[in-house]
Amino acid sequence: MERHIAVPLTSEEAETLHAGDYVYLTGTIYTARDAAHKRMYEALEKGEQLPLELKDNVIYYMGPSPAREGRAIGSAGPTTASRMDKYAPVLLDKGLRGMIGKGRRRQTVKEAIVRNKAVYFAAIGGAGALLSRAIVSSEVIAYDDLGTEAIRKLQVKDFPVIVVMDTMGNDLYETASLPYRRDFAET
């Protein structure tokens, strides 16, 4: 199914999404990678406030390249999501509603997704130049000293993603290959 969704994303809206849905996001999303996740995690451990509101927001695991003239951002492809798995359950428990990345997630992240009625989206790796065209604006809002790993606030219009894991825990990485598997014990 193809859907057009406004972000931030409510739990009610998230519950209507299913693994395998093609989704076009429009609104505000944030970027954060390894170093930013580590800082946010440490801030939470110290009882400090985070530089962004997590409730119902979506974080894109991406570090952009410099913007070309006339563009809001350079190439903006996804990074491997599992690098954030140590931190993701805590952020989901604090209200994060969605994540965008590529690759499989650990069981602890899957459990946190279901527990918090969240969604994990995949963006197409290797398509960073194409994905950047859906980014209308980009503004560093925290951890500027981290360079490309700083937290950015992005305005997106019809940003293409696929629901990889839905609020029920259905995981496209597990189910999509089932029709193509052979039972080698029978041959």
Rank of each mutant, 00 (worst) to 15 (best):
V114K: 03
V136S: 02
R133L: 06
D171R: 03
L178E: 15
V156R: 00
M165I: 10
D158Q: 09
A67N: 06
A76N: 01
V140Y: 12
G98A: 14
G125T: 05
V119A: 03
T16C: 12
V90Y: 06
A127K: 02
R97E: 11
A176N: 08
M168G: 11
R106D: 09
D93C: 03
T31P: 01
M165S: 02
A112M: 03
I113G: 00
L154R: 01
E69T: 15
G169A: 07
E139A: 09
S132E: 05
G95H: 08
R104S: 06
R83S: 00
L131M: 05
K117G: 07
V109W: 01
I141Y: 10
K110C: 03
V163M: 05
G125N: 00
S138R: 05
L91C: 07
G95E: 11
K110N: 05
V90I: 13
G47C: 09
I59Q: 10
G128M: 06
R105D: 00
V23G: 02
R104L: 02
I59T: 09
T148V: 14
L17A: 09
G70V: 14
I113C: 02
H37R: 08
A6H: 15
R97Y: 10
S137N: 10
I135A: 00
S137H: 04
E53F: 11
V90Q: 12
A123N: 00
L52C: 11
G126H: 01
Y173W: 14
I141W: 08
S75A: 12
M99K: 11
Y24R: 04
L92S: 04
K38S: 14
K46N: 14
T175F: 12
T26E: 02
S137F: 01
G101V: 01
L52N: 07
H37Q: 10
G125W: 00
E186I: 15
L130H: 04
I135T: 00
G128K: 03
M40G: 07
A88S: 14
Y173G: 06
E2Q: 08
R68E: 15
T80R: 00
M62N: 09
K38D: 14
T148F: 13
A67R: 02
S65V: 07
P160F: 09
G20M: 07
L52D: 06
M99Q: 13
H18V: 10
V163Q: 02
A134M: 01
